[in-house]
């Protein structure tokens, strides 16, 4: 699939990931050096991560077993009591459910929109310039800082806002819809904003992925009588699958921590309609000063994403 190849080879015949196993190695200086080499390459990453991430993460984990920290000068260990408190808090589960809904809908729609636009932009039916113009317009939502996206959409979605004015003029709605203030539409509205802001990441990556699918695959399929829909499911999707998996993983992790967008549009409200894990954790930490409990929530989120990362790492191995 790399563009260095101009002729197609089936993916399975790809270069082996690791060199063929050599004769059973003996412990020699040369072998030691060989063992050390990859760590040499990884050393800047490891140093950076250990120095800047390990300390704070270990601290957060240790906070989670204390009674309270930071605002408390002599914290006492309380074992797993905070875990009991958090896991027994219905607000936590409500936030977890909302997060899951917000994240999964965002990821799926990001993918669908991103793929659709990528395929449209990959068309040969339009001229180069036309495509370049659309490419730039479609990437625009990606270029703004979250604070601005939040205030912009608050303005657009307000009961007197532009969105209502437009929808009313075409007769889709009557009257002033409170998109963000109505408990039944709020979560959908923030999800919509997140979708608007995030799909270009997929679009660009998938567009690139599409460029890399060898054309002869499609030609061969056409000769076998496959229509566009069959070609899409039989070639496009399988070819893009590895890319889709990594994009979706990154997006999933990033979206579960989306804080500023939700905080600045709804503050987790109305009532608890858009309360997600990140706003829940923020409130624990900075409005109730329960840093130990906030850290506990963070550790729970970390544990969950490690499971996710484990499956990701495994899927990656299996492919090699």
């Amino acid at each position: 699939m790399t563009t260095t190849r101009t002729t197609h080879r089936p993916p399975r015949e790809d270069r082996p990931q690791a060199p063929p196993p050599a004769a059973r190695p003996r412990w020699t200086a040369a072998l030691l050096r060989r063992r050390a080499t990859p760590f040499g390459y990884l050393s800047p990453t490891i140093v950076l991560m250990v120095v800047l991430m390990a300390v704070p993460i270990v601290m957060v984990i240790s906070y989670s077993v204390m009674d309270n920290v930071i605002t408390n000068r002599s914290p006492e260990p309380v074992g797993l009591a905070n875990y009991g408190t958090i896991l027994g808090d219905p607000a936590f589960w409500k936030a977890a459910t909302n997060t899951l809904a917000f994240t999964s809908v965002s990821v799926v729609v990001h993918l669908v929109l991103g793929l659709t636009f990528a395929i449209l932009l990959n068309t040969e039916l339009l001229g180069k310039v036309t495509k370049a113009v659309f490419r730039v317009i479609l990437v625009l939502p990606w270029l703004f800082t979250v604070a601005i996206i939040a205030v912009l959409w608050r303005m657009l979605l307000s009961p007197n806002g532009v969105v209502n004015a437009i929808l009313e003029s075409v007769g889709l709605i009557g009257g002033e819809v409170e998109w963000l203030s109505n408990p039944t539409t709020a979560l959908a509205a923030v999800t919509f904003i997140n979708i608007w802001a995030g799909y270009p990441f997929y679009m660009i990556s998938l567009l690139a992925g599409l460029q890399g699918i060898p054309r002869d695959l499609y030609e061969a399929a056409s000769i076998d009588g496959a229509g566009p829909v069959q070609r899409f499911w039989a070639i496009t999707i399988p070819q893009l699958k590895p890319l889709i998996i990594s994009l979706a993983l990154l997006d999933f992790i990033w979206t579960t921590q989306q804080f500023a967008l939700i905080w600045m549009t709804t503050g987790g409200g109305p009532i608890d309609a858009t309360e997600v894990l990140s706003t829940f954790t923020y409130k624990l930490a900075f409005t109730r000063y329960e840093f130990a409990e906030a850290s506990t929530a963070a550790v729970i989120i970390l544990a969950f994403s490690m499971v996710l990362a484990y499956f990701y790492a495994r899927s990656q191995r299996a492919r090699d």
């Binding site: 390459y41 990884l42 704070p56 957060v60 992790i253 954790t281 900075f286 929530a297 191995r317």
Partner: peptide, 29 residues
């Protein structure tokens, strides 16, 4: 390009540290 011990573990760590809510890291960091 290399196979080495702990490769998978490092992979998992690199992916999952991104998931810690930054807001909780803020003060220790």
């Amino acid at each position: 390009r290399f196979d080495f011990p702990l490769k998978k573990t490092l992979n998992v760590v690199i992916v999952s540290v991104q998931a810690v809510p930054p807001i909780t890291l803020l003060i220790p960091y």
